[in-house]
């Protein structure tokens, strides 16, 4: 079994798995390196360009880890969305339920 799961079933994609946690950690590191990297790069500091490069790599890695799971969640959810919207409007029209 591979370290990062890339093929998802609808049921498994809906669960919280390690790929979610990996994406969250990478996302945080990406934001921090992006903030520091851009500021230092604007002053043409070498460290800035390196940190910015790290940020881009981490962002791509995050996308690679989480995108298959997000795609599966979205496609499955869209099939049910119409029914859920109907329920939402029923709650909104609460007088009918009284």
């Amino acid at each position: 079994m591979s370290l990062i799961r890339r093929v998802w079933t609808p049921g498994a994609a809906d669960e919280w798995r390690k790929e979610d946690w990996i994406a969250i950690v990478l996302s945080v590191i990406s934001y921090i390196t992006l903030t520091v990297g851009v500021a230092l790069s604007f002053l043409l500091l070498t460290a800035g360009f390196i940190i910015l490069g790290v940020s881009i790599v981490i962002t791509l890695l995050m996308y690679w880890v989480i995108d298959p799971k997000l795609r599966m969640i979205s496609s499955e959810y869209e099939k049910k969305q119409k029914d859920y919207l109907k329920r939402l409007e029923e709650i909104q029209k609460w007088e009918d339920q009284k």
Partner: peptide, 16 residues
């Protein structure tokens, strides 16, 4: 995610 990344980039450009 992307909208906030732009906000952070903007902040850093301002900071310089």
């Amino acid at each position: 995610w992307a909208g906030t990344a732009l906000v952070l980039i903007r902040n850093s450009i301002w900071a310089a």
